[in-house]
Computed example of a mutant assay.
Amino acid sequence: MTLGGHFDKSGPAGPFGAGADPLWVEEYGYGLGPPTGILILKYGSGGALEIPESRSDFVHQLYWTPDGMLSVRHANRTEFIGTTEALWVRRGVTHEVFASRKQIIYRICLREVPLSLRSLRVAAVSADQQSRNLIEQIARPGQDEAEALAARMTIMAGLGATHRDFVGRDPIGTPSSSRTTGFAQTIARTLLHDPADPTRLEEWAARLHTSTKTLQRDFVREFGMSYSQWRNRIRLDAAVVLLETKSVTEVAHRVGYSSVPAFVTAFAREYGHTPGRYALGATDSA
């Protein structure tokens, strides 16, 4: 059975204003009922998007976005997930998922645990290109159920272990002809997991045995912007999420700015207003 629907809801509260952007959700279900089924919720918004605190005792959940960064809060921790990763959450685990910009989020509900993820409760996991393509494909109207269920098996098989500490293992020292990802994606994974990482482009080049020119070219090809522009955007996206629970000063240092004024200036340039008006307690004068 395929479910299709487009539901408009009021926009989520957040730094861009409660109700400022309509939130829409589409539902696509295949083989629902047996453990071998799959349900995909496709969320979209014109601005910041929040999937609020959620706990399901019946299904496991996988979140993925093709458009940027996701953050997840669970057990008083905030973590960030990139586009080549997915967030795996076992059933019964309370969590919140956020996106700070206009983007699509896919929420995949499963009753079976993928073989490679059996030891994990909440984690950023790898999702190969084929799996990501299939998620987008079956979250569209008019899909054949048998084909969608076959795609489900491929998606589950394409999920792998966490990408934490990815840099320093597979890509480095590997001949460029046998790499499966570009230099920019390799660096992006590390920066997403630690936005404050201070590594300069020339240091990355030395670590990856390549040139700064090659790295810059890879960033423009992969993300449409330079390394410094991409790093700044990731830091500010992370800041939007962290500001809901931390002060401006804490967030500035958490995302890698050496001073609060530098952070406030960059934030205002990106979003058109300073961060102080909605930081924790709004006590920082910035």
Rank of each mutant, 00 (worst) to 15 (best):
M1E: 10
L3K: 07
G4N: 04
F7H: 13
K9R: 09
K9W: 13
G11I: 10
P12Q: 04
G17R: 12
A20V: 00
W24P: 00
Y30T: 07
G33Q: 12
S45A: 14
G46W: 06
P66I: 03
P66R: 14
D67W: 08
R73S: 03
F80E: 08
T83E: 11
L87C: 08
R91I: 02
E96D: 01
F98L: 01
A99R: 03
I104V: 14
Y106D: 00
Y106L: 06
R107Q: 11
I108E: 03
I108Q: 03
L110P: 01
P114W: 07
R121Y: 05
R121S: 12
R121D: 12
A123M: 13
S126E: 15
S126T: 15
A127K: 08
N133E: 08
I135D: 01
P141L: 05
Q143S: 15
A146F: 10
E147G: 15
A151G: 04
R152H: 12
I155Y: 02
L159S: 04
L159G: 02
H163R: 14
V167M: 14
P171F: 09
T174R: 09
T174L: 15
T174M: 11
P175Q: 05
S176N: 08
R179P: 03
I187F: 08
L191S: 00
D197N: 11
E202D: 12
E203M: 07
E203N: 09
A206N: 02
R207W: 06
R207A: 06
S211R: 10
S211Y: 01
T212M: 08
K213W: 01
T214P: 00
R221P: 04
S228K: 14
S228V: 15
Q229F: 12
V240P: 03
L243A: 01
E244N: 13
T245F: 06
V251W: 11
V251R: 12
H253A: 13
G256E: 03
S258F: 10
P261V: 06
F263Q: 12
F263E: 07
V264L: 10
F267C: 05
H273D: 11
R277Q: 15
L280V: 13
S285I: 06
